[in-house]
Structures are given as structure tokens and as C-alpha cells.
């Protein structure tokens, strides 16, 4: 049973192994805090959409499943969007359009279609949590690397905590800006994916 849960985190990590959901991963992984916020939103939407889709999988007509998935997903995304705007306005401004865009994030539709629609509720929830945590982990690692190198801080919160100055004060004057620009995102994800492949190959060899 818990195999489902851990599969989504490592072996089938949506970002690093399946290479889906890359758009938000690249766009909002400019800081560790943003990445966590995005990850939390995705975990919530993924778990609940999996739960709903799985519980109603016997009543949803086959021909209508995609529109219904979309309605379910967009409902949860809108809820997250409203709640974030109301209670975490700073984070919501930072994530911007990428929260509403979770609607078309292929991880969520992919899990609904590929897993939740065919499996019982308990498994579907675990799968949602697992994939969500896998996504969060990947985006958080990226956010950490990019923020530390590109900004010299870690876990800085806009309008709040300044962040840990991991590389010292001197680094703050000349951070590697490249890392928080879009090409830096591609570079980091390439390194991470390459690393995953490398260890996967070594483990199975």
C-alpha cells in the first residue's frame, strides 16, 4: 500500500523522472519559500482531486471524464487561489499566475486520469500525497539551489524574514544572478535530472 506513496516521491518523481509539470517548476523555483508555497498548493489540489475522482469513479461516465476532472481540479485550484489571496497575499503575489495555472498542470490531470480513476480511494489519496510531495521536493531543491546561488540567501520571505545568509555576507554583493534568471532554472533542472539518471543507472547496474 505504501509503495504507492513512495513511488511518487522517488522512483516516479513527476518532475525529475517523468518530466511533467515543468512549467511551474521552472518559473517559481526562484526561491525556496516560493517553491514551498507552490508545493503546498499542488499537494492540496492533487490529494483532493484524486480523492474526489476516485470516490466518484464508478459514476463518472467514461465519455465525460476529462471535463469532469477539469471541473474538479479547477474548483480546488480556485479555492487555493482565493485562500492564498486572503491569508497569504505576499506569497500569492509572488506565485502570480502560476497558482491558477495549476489547473492545466499535467501532474494533476495525469494522476487523476492515470491513477485515481482506476484505483480505490485510499490508494488514490496516498498517490496524490506521494506525487505532490515528490513535486514539492523537486521544486524545493531547485528553489534552494537557485536562491542560495542566485541571491545568497535561503528561505527568505518577501516582506518578512531576510533569509539565512548561507554563503556569507560577501557573497550577497555578487550573487550568481544567472541562477534566478530563466536559463538558470533550465541549468539546475538539467543537473538534477542528470544526477537522478546517474544514480538510477548505478543502482540498477
Amino acid at each position: 500500500m505504501f509503495k504507492t506513496f513512495f513511488e511518487g516521491i522517488v522512483k516516479n518523481n513527476p518532475v525529475l523522472v517523468l518530466a511533467i509539470g515543468l512549467c511551474p517548476t521552472l518559473a517559481v523555483s526562484t526561491s525556496a519559500f516560493n517553491a514551498l508555497g507552490m508545493g503546498a498548493a499542488v499537494i492540496f489540489v492533487l490529494t483532493f482531486s484524486n480523492l474526489i475522482v476516485s470516490s466518484f469513479r464508478k459514476v463518472i461516465p467514461d465519455s465525460l471524464r476529462i471535463p469532469i476532472f477539469i471541473i474538479v481540479i479547477s474548483t480546488f485550484v480556485t479555492i487555493v487561489d482565493y485562500v492564498m489571496k486572503a491569508y497569504l497575499p505576499g506569497l500569492s503575489k509572488n506565485l502570480g499566475v502560476f497558482v491558477p495555472l495549476i489547473v492545466v498542470n499535467c501532474i494533476i490531470l495525469g494522476r487523476a486520469e492515470g491513477f485515481a480513476y482506476k484505483n480505490p480511494v485510499g490508494k488514490a489519496i496516498l498517490d496524490g500525497l506521494g506525487s505532490g510531495i515528490g513535486f514539492t521536493l523537486a521544486i524545493f531543491i531547485m528553489g534552494t539551489i537557485r536562491e542560495i546561488l542566485g541571491q545568497g540567501t535561503w528561505m527568505s520571505i518577501p516582506g518578512g524574514f531576510e533569509g539565512f545568509k548561507v554563503l556569507g555576507q560577501g557573497f550577497l554583493n555578487y550573487p550568481v544572478l544567472f541562477m534566478i534568471l530563466p536559463p538558470g532554472g533550465f541549468l539546475v533542472i538539467a543537473f538534477l535530472m542528470g544526477g537522478m539518471r546517474y544514480f538510477e543507472a548505478r543502482r540498477s547496474a
Binding site: 471541473i71 474548483t75 480556485t78 479555492i79 482565493y82 485562500v83 489571496k85 486572503a86 491569508y87 497575499p89
Partner: peptide
């Protein structure tokens, strides 16, 4: 779905405006 969203909107919109 719309009913659910209406409830959430009702709850959050005053807060959003206040912010």
C-alpha cells in the same frame, strides 16, 4: 462546484478586500 466556490468566495472576498 459552483456552490462550493460561492461559499469560499463569500468567506474570502471580504478578507481579500480588507488586505
Amino acid at each position: 462546484a459552483s456552490a462550493l466556490l460561492a461559499v469560499v468566495y463569500e468567506k474570502t472576498s471580504p478578507e481579500i478586500e480588507k488586505r
